[in-house]
Simulated assay, not measured.
Amino acid sequence: MAESNTESRHPAADGLHLQPAGQILSALLDAQIGALAGVKPALPAIEKAAEICADALARGGRMGYAGAGSSGLMALADSLELAGTFGLPPERTPMMFAGGADALLHMKGAAEDDPRLAVADLDASGLQAGDAVLILTASGRTPYALTIAQEARARGITVVGFANVDGTPLLEMSDIAVLLRTGAEIVAGSTRMGAATAQKVALNMLSVLVGIRLGHVHDGYMVNLVADNAKLVDRAMRIVSNLASVPLPVAEAALTATQGAVKPAILVAQGMDPERAAAELERTGGHLQPLLA
């Protein structure tokens, strides 16, 4: 069993540089798979966080993300994917990344040590009391993350902290602490590996549960997407066809009537007019289940 500190030395690292390429790759893969074991004990905290975030979004609020370095990149990936997957407008899921957009091309470590940047990013995010923010840092000690956590709690924002090391400041100051105990990295301290893999998996699960709670996933389909390119138009047609039990041409016509919005198109394909479909979805809070024939 690897040590808990991500800066510790992994047992499989001995002589790693002398091994054949295939053996190195196998060891790296095994370390990634092993890191995922750290996600299982965190499921109750992830569930609680998802419910809090879904409630904030359902009330018209926001679910923010914050992080630096590799952890920030995992948070950024999840936040960017929510619009295409669940139809959530980007302004409802703001991202705070240490160093801003420039750091995405040339990451500089100093940005994560400046608390003033963290406060400015939180100010610009639009997050306010009643919202939630997911803050990620492998070490649990990154100043950028800690500053946002402290300021967010002071403003009445629910803080969900993700870290890969026990007993760290971020976990201690979070309303919901998500400990992903991934242990030592096979390249000591390179948390873009096991720690980041576990973080991305945890975020994937959290955001999918949020999408389900908001009614944006039905029978495993992305029903809140709006088809705005060829790939999504094809996907939307198949979703409408399957859930409304109609041929593809009928699904296509329904999507045309709803300007590509899938949820109302499903109802239109079953015989509703677009105005009534929109009104019924408003009544059910965006959930299809009560409305399907």
Rank of each mutant, 00 (worst) to 15 (best):
Q270N: 12
E91F: 13
R9E: 00
E3R: 08
P94T: 05
N204H: 08
G167H: 14
E185N: 07
D121Q: 08
H216W: 12
N164Y: 00
G64C: 07
F86Y: 14
V233S: 04
A110K: 04
A42S: 14
H17A: 14
L171M: 07
H216E: 05
A177F: 13
E3C: 06
M222Q: 07
Q150P: 00
A49N: 04
A278R: 01
G260S: 08
M74G: 11
E51C: 08
A50H: 09
T147F: 08
V210K: 04
D14W: 01
I135E: 03
N5R: 09
M173C: 15
A21K: 13
D78G: 12
A50Q: 06
L243C: 05
L179C: 06
L36D: 10
G271D: 08
A265M: 04
I157M: 01
H106S: 10
K263I: 05
G60R: 11
A198T: 09
L292A: 08
V217M: 01
G64N: 09
P247Q: 11
L57F: 11
L29F: 11
P169Q: 04
Q270I: 11
G109L: 02
A138M: 00
H216F: 11
A293S: 15
A129N: 13
T93H: 02
M237C: 15
Q289R: 12
T256W: 01
L292Y: 01
V240P: 03
L146S: 09
P169N: 03
G22Y: 03
R192D: 01
L117C: 10
N242E: 13
G61D: 14
L232H: 09
L28W: 06
A230Q: 13
M95S: 13
T142C: 09
S139F: 02
L180D: 03
S79E: 09
A21N: 15
T258L: 05
L255C: 05
A184L: 07
D102H: 14
A98E: 06
L243D: 04
A257K: 06
G211H: 14
E3Y: 09
M222F: 09
V250A: 14
I135Y: 03
R235N: 07
I148C: 03
M96P: 06
A98H: 10
D78Y: 03
I212Y: 06
L36C: 15
L179T: 11
I176D: 07
L127C: 04
G69A: 10
Q23W: 09
L28I: 14
I212A: 07
S207V: 05
M173F: 02
G38V: 07
P94D: 02
L267C: 11
R155S: 04
N242L: 12
L28T: 02
V133N: 05
R116A: 03
H17G: 11
R155K: 10
G161R: 07
G109I: 02
L146D: 07
D273N: 15
G84H: 15
R153K: 02
E280N: 15
K200E: 00
A195D: 03
V223K: 05
F162E: 10
A278S: 14
F97W: 06
Q289D: 11
E112M: 05
D234K: 14
P169F: 04
A184W: 05
G183R: 01
Q19S: 12
S4G: 03
L203R: 04
E151T: 10
S71A: 12
L76V: 13
M272E: 15
I176R: 06
G220D: 13
E91N: 15
R213E: 02
Y221F: 15
T256Y: 01
A138R: 08
